[in-house]
Design a binder for these strands. Structure first.
Lengths: 140, 140
DNA sequence: CATAGGTGTAATAATATATGTTACAATGGA
DNA sequence: TCCATTGTAACATATATTATTACACCTATG
């Protein structure tokens, strides 16, 4: 089990926009060429990033740009833009309420797994687009 | 996107075995009744837990028991028993190597997401079956 | 003001993964 | 031998993901 390609793809898109801003017009076709996905996937993802207030897309003429400094965009922003707000783990519905384990499992496990998800969010919040742009430039 | 129900279900199974050991014979049908899944799912999961050395299952007669103290079983053990060893996030294959972002994204993002996964594993390793059994008994 | 290149979005398809179910040979105690 | 049970394969179903096609709409520009 792993998370979908959406966070990596969205991050890739933002890095390209940040890196090529002013230099190239970052259209969906241009971005699709770097990421290696269908341009429609790029447009859908850009739509999510736009809804989250991270980018502006030029209607008609085309191209996207960041609405804030890369310093102020974190992976948590990206994660929230492209992933549903939900529990980290899926719980089985309707465990047996007659069983002491069944009637407590969701509370007992759920609260602990919730904390783990919170740590993950905190970690994501600690990574900025700026840091990633610098790392990309190191070209190792 | 969320992880499958497997970790919660496997944990539920172990908690039942730990709680009812000696009291009831924890057959797949018995466990299925508490978890609310098909007995075959329980048997498959028990098979994974057995392969990981966490339980023993009595062939023929039926019933399962823990091979170690609940103090020595952590959620990381359970996670590893039922989930594939893989990256937290799925990466897009073949990003464009001509693009500075495309040829660096996997290294730059991958290493950082790898650390986040490691934190998750550390968190899971800090939760023991014993702690969960106590919490279940609190019946709140 | 027509056009070319671009976006937004719906519809559909293809694929993968997760979960549920049936079936049945094999096990081992009563 | 009989019976409850396990282990496992095969198949079915549901859901999520990703790819693709199609097309109406937008806007700078010749």
């Amino acid at each position: 089990m792993q998370f979908s390609v959406r966070l990596p793809v969205a991050t890739h898109i933002l890095l390209c926009i940040g890196k090529f801003q002013g230099e190239y017009k970052t259209t969906s076709t241009f971005l699709a060429g770097s990421v290696n996905v269908h341009p429609v996937i790029i447009r859908k993802t850009l739509g999510q990033l736009r809804a989250a207030g991270l980018v502006e897309v030029a209607a008609g003429v085309g191209g996207a740009k960041l609405t804030k400094s890369p310093r102020d965009i974190t992976l948590l922003d990206v994660f929230r833009a492209v992933e549903e707000e939900e529990d980290l783990f899926h719980f089985q519905e309707n465990p047996n309420p007659q069983c002491p384990v069944g009637r407590n499992i969701h509370r007992v496990l759920g609260t602990r797994l919730e904390k783990i998800k919170q740590h993950m969010m905190d970690d994501l919040a600690g990574i900025t687009l700026e840091e990633l742009l610098h790392a990309v430039d190191e070209e190792n």
